[in-house]
């Protein structure tokens, strides 16, 4: 893993009140790679994901210590502007969550609230570009004024990806992005993720071991709030170093 590192995490701890949810996590996440996080429910992987763009700030009694650096800037520094952080670190959720607006307005939203365009021409250009990037343009170009809810689940998820891409983040966090999709839509999203890594750093939480094996460059295994093992994916899925990792990924666990 001798790549350029985008996210550096050092001695990172997270707590929900008394509950110690992440225990002294140390991890380097390389730029323009896909990092998958696997582990049983409650292992801390979603907490970790949401700590990267401070989505957990909204939870009462949530606190962290240690370092979470993106491109050398501490995410939890007091001077950091959380809104601009979230602009740099986009997120895609388990269930597609388009706004109750048209397809066009869903993508336009981030540009409008952040005033990221000069004129309508630029707005339209940016919307088309991110819909193309998300692999959705051909399917929706004639229906941009239709409600986003008229799209299929897989299309809605790609719309949410387009919505994340349009404001040009550096990092995209994905929390089980295909959990509610059928196999064809899942395959499309997986293909898309692999194209996107050219321009973005991607961190994906998945419960699907085969999905991590298929798409990720590096895989991390979490358990009970600890990072147990972190390695290149091919190594993790052929000969993991720790027995507990092997037991988990082969389903011998529990």
């Amino acid at each position: 893993m001798s790549d350029e590192i985008r996210i550096v995490v050092k001695n990172f701890n997270a707590y929900y009140g008394e509950k110690h949810a992440l225990k002294n996590v140390n991890i380097d996440i390389p730029a323009n790679k896909i990092m998958a996080m696997i582990g049983p429910s409650g292992c801390g992987k979603s907490t970790f994901l949401r700590s990267i763009n401070r989505m957990n700030d909204l939870i009462e009694n949530f606190k962290v210590d240690g370092q979470m650096m993106i491109d050398g800037n501490d995410v939890y520094d007091k001077t950091i502007d959380v809104t601009s952080l979230r602009r740099r670190v986009g997120m895609v959720f388990q269930k597609p969550n388009p706004f109750p607006k048209t397809i066009y307005e869903n993508v336009a939203y981030g540009l409008r609230v952040n005033r990221l365009f000069k004129d309508n021409k630029e707005l339209e250009h940016k919307i088309e570009k991110s819909l193309v990037e998300a692999g959705l343009w051909e399917e929706v170009k004639d229906d941009l004024d239709k409600s986003a809810f008229e799209l299929s689940g897989g299309q809605q998820q790609r719309l949410c990806i387009a919505r994340a891409l349009v404001i040009q983040p550096e990092v995209i966090l994905m929390d089980e992005p295909t959990a509610s999709l059928d196999p064809i839509s899942t395959a499309k999203i997986e293909e898309l993720i692999q194209v996107l890594k050219k321009d973005y750093t991607i961190v994906i939480v998945t419960h699907n071991m085969q999905q991590a094996a298929r798409v990720a460059d590096n895989t991390s295994f979490f358990m009970l709030g600890e990072l147990i093992e972190y390695d290149v994916t091919s190594r993790m899925f052929t000969k993991p170093v720790k027995k507990i990792t092997e037991d988990y990924i082969t389903g011998r666990f529990g």
């Binding site: 071991m209 899925f237 052929t238 990924i249 082969t250």
Partner: peptide, 9 residues
């Protein structure tokens, strides 16, 4: 089964 790790080996 799409085996991995020890099962695959």
């Amino acid at each position: 089964r799409q085996p991995i790790a020890i099962d695959l080996r």
